[in-house]
Design a protein around this nucleic acid. Structure first.
Length: 591
RNA sequence: GCCGACGUGGCGCAGAGGUAGCGCAACGGUUUCGUAAACCGUCGGUCGUCGGUUCGAAUCCGACCGUCGGCUCCA
């Protein structure tokens, strides 16, 4: 089953759900409190959202975050008044006259946009009244357990050309216990934040001297990247991909031809002028034009297709500074990118093959909670290249494939790439924000622009179709998300350091070093912590660094040729022989 | 980019007009130890940057840089 969403909004919340209703009423309570405290305020919209609600206002003067407390206190006071909440219906003319008289132009605009036959209802509590479809709780006394969280700017109707309003976010729950639990969960989630753990675990860093949104990967983080790349390379080798390597910059003419300079310009770093040679270069925001050049390098036969060119390609996108978020949105990142050049007959099976790889990948990473989004064109927007026929064919190919695969998915208008529609895997971070991870896109348009060809069985030249795909999406974002998913405690195969050997006293260091060489030869990432610290302290630090296995060795072990195995979070598992230990560790690799 | 908040040694914090402190980390020494923090000592800060107010600024004001929460946009 699938639902349609418009403009990417998640409207899955159900207006008959009591919690949804409660939050909606809390938004009204907030608006009433704001109205009492700030005369002249203008009301925009105030819907319930997944874990709370917000209300957008235009304040006569900007407000400060500390004023939220005053507003919240007033809300409690109004709640105590137990004002009945009453519904009334007005004619369109009456409704407009009413809001015009109150000088509420946002409400007038909303009424004007309501469909002809829509009933226009208002909800009154005390002397405060708001345009609203409802439903609401019976009286304000029902609203008790809420908290205002933060203040933010939001453009009226989400359009940056409109005036920026002040949005107040809050949360509301049926009981105090649920509110407390929610606030506790928020605090806990912050501890999983990949920006915090990334520093504590020594994975990555940012430097303002290098530049905003440009990540620097530390040795342990680089090991994680290598592990993920090895995983994907092996999988791609099994699935008939060929690796290629292309440069980070290109002549601007290439990106002129691809349409990027026209349709992706806002996201590209400023062009580089080579005055001496009279050339202009771009820092690549995508890898496709480069891979297209490799495809076009030779005349291809239908026997060669599908051609699957893969590269861990680092791309640079000029994201707005306010949008940068740790590793989850950066300005330079590495995609596990590939472009497949296929015949029309191959499109569906190849597309399904890619989806299979994407799902296999998420499963292996332990990310089982994801949403499938099919991004199609927004017909009102002109940021796309290509003909309507091509778009129709590409969108149908994707929808048919996912339906045949029996997948749950949602269609989102306006979320296509500029050259074609796509299927995205969406995953949430610790704070429940949703991010696009893996993506697969069907593209009839770039092959046309570059006049790509292959010779078919009929001896004639035909045009291939392109599939763009990246199962991880980007290594940077994927690792950021994995850090949060596992709270830094990676499964054994992913852990940057898999084993920490802890010799109890100095005299056991030699034994520990021999063990290390042995395990390293078996392909285990292992270090010895032979520092002059008590064993307990070194165990504690290994636990905090989330090392999955600790091997402790002292006199007894050297005597018996054993090592005592300790599993992170589980404690001492007892002594094992070196062979048993090696086998145990290799067994963990596949778990 | 826009709205709001924040910026003090590597990290976490205190200091609210009178010349910067605490814990952890780091470093040195002692200790050689059986499953989550041994003991003693030492080093370390142009208080994000620049400018202004003041006899005097980490504390007040302005601009810029960066970070955080959103909006817009996207891997």
């Amino acid at each position: 089953m699938w639902t349609t969403t418009i403009g990417g909004n998640d409207l899955s919340t159900d207006s008959s759900d009591p919690v949804y209703m409660l939050r909606h009423s809390t938004a009204h309570l907030l608006a009433q409190a704001v109205g009492e405290l700030y005369p002249g305020v203008k009301y925009a919209i105030g819907p319930p959202i997944e874990e709370g609600f917000y209300y957008d206002f235009e304040f006569p003067q900007p407000i400060k975050e500390e004023e939220l407390l005053l507003i919240e206190n007033r809300m409690h006071e109004i709640s105590g008044r137990k004002l009945p909440i009453e519904r009334s219906v007005l004619s369109r003319e009456m409704a407009i006259a009413h809001e015009t008289a109150r000088n509420q132009q946002y409400k007038v605009e909303l009424i004007n946009d309501l469909p002809e036959n829509e009933e226009i209802s208002f909800y009154r509590q005390g002397d405060w009244i708001d345009l609203c479809r409802g439903p609401h709780v019976p009286d304000t006394g029902h609203i008790k357990h809420f908290h205002l969280l933060h203040i933010a700017g939001a453009y009226w109707r989400g359009n940056e050309k409109n005036k920026m309003l002040t949005r107040i976010y809050g949360t509301a729950w049926p009981t105090q216990q649920e509110l407390d639990d929610y606030l506790y969960r928020l605090e806990e989630a912050k501890k999983r934040d990949h920006r915090v753990l990334g520093r504590e675990l020594g994975l990555f860093m940012f430097s303002s001297e290098v530049g905003q949104g440009l990540p620097l990967w530390l040795p342990k983080g680089a090991t994680l990247r290598d592990t993920l790349m090895d995983f994907m390379k092996k999988e791609q080798l099994n699935r008939g991909y060929q690796g290629v390597v292309t440069p980070h910059i290109a002549n601007a003419k290439l990106y002129m031809k691809s349409g990027h300079l026209k349709n992706y310009n806002a996201k590209m770093f400023p062009l580089m002028q080579d005055e001496a040679e009279g050339e202009t270069y771009v820092l690549k925001p995508m890898n496709c034009p480069h891979h297209i050049m490799i495809y076009a390098n030779e005349l291809r036969s239908y026997r060669d297709l599908p051609v699957r060119l893969a590269e861990f390609g680092t791309v640079y996108r000029y994201e707005q500074s306010g949008e940068l978020t740790g590793m989850l949105r950066v300005r330079g990142f590495t995609q596990d990118d590939s472009h497949l050049f296929v015949t029309p007959e191959q499109l569906k099976p190849e597309f399904k093959g890619v989806v299979d790889l994407m799902l296999f990948t998420l499963n292996r990473l332990g990310l089982t909670d994801y949403r499938v989004r099919v991004g199609v064109r927004d017909p009102k927007d002109d940021k796309y290249i290509g003909t309507d026929e091509n778009w129709k064919a590409a969108e149908e190919a994707i929808l048919l494939a996912v339906q045949e695969m029996g997948m749950d998915y949602e269609v989102s208008e306006g979320d296509a790439a500029f050259y074609g529609p796509k299927l995205d895997l969406m995953v949430r971070d610790a704070l429940h924000r949703e991010w696009q991870m893996g993506t697969v896109q069907v593209d009839y348009n770039l092959p046309e622009r570059f006049e790509l060809e292959y010779v078919a069985e009929d001896g004639q030249r035909h045009r291939p179709i392109m599939i763009h795909r990246a199962p991880f999406g980007s290594l940077d974002r994927m690792i950021g998300l994995l850090v949060e998913h596992y709270a830094g405690a990676f499964p054994f195969w992913l852990a940057p350091q898999q084993v920490c050997i802890i010799p109890i006293a100095d005299r056991h260091n030699g034994y520990a070093q021999e063990l290390k060489v042995r395990l390293r030869d078996s392909g285990i990432r292992v270090e010895v912590d032979g520092r002059n610290e008590k064993m307990g302290k070194r165990i504690r630090e290994a636990e905090m660094q989330k090392v999955p296995v600790m091997l402790v060795c002292g006199d007894r072990d050297i005597e018996a040729g054993t090592v005592s195995v300790r599993r992170r979070g589980e404690g001492d598992l007892g002594a094992k022989s070196i062979d048993e230990t090696t086998e145990y560790l290799l067994g963990l690799l596949s778990s």
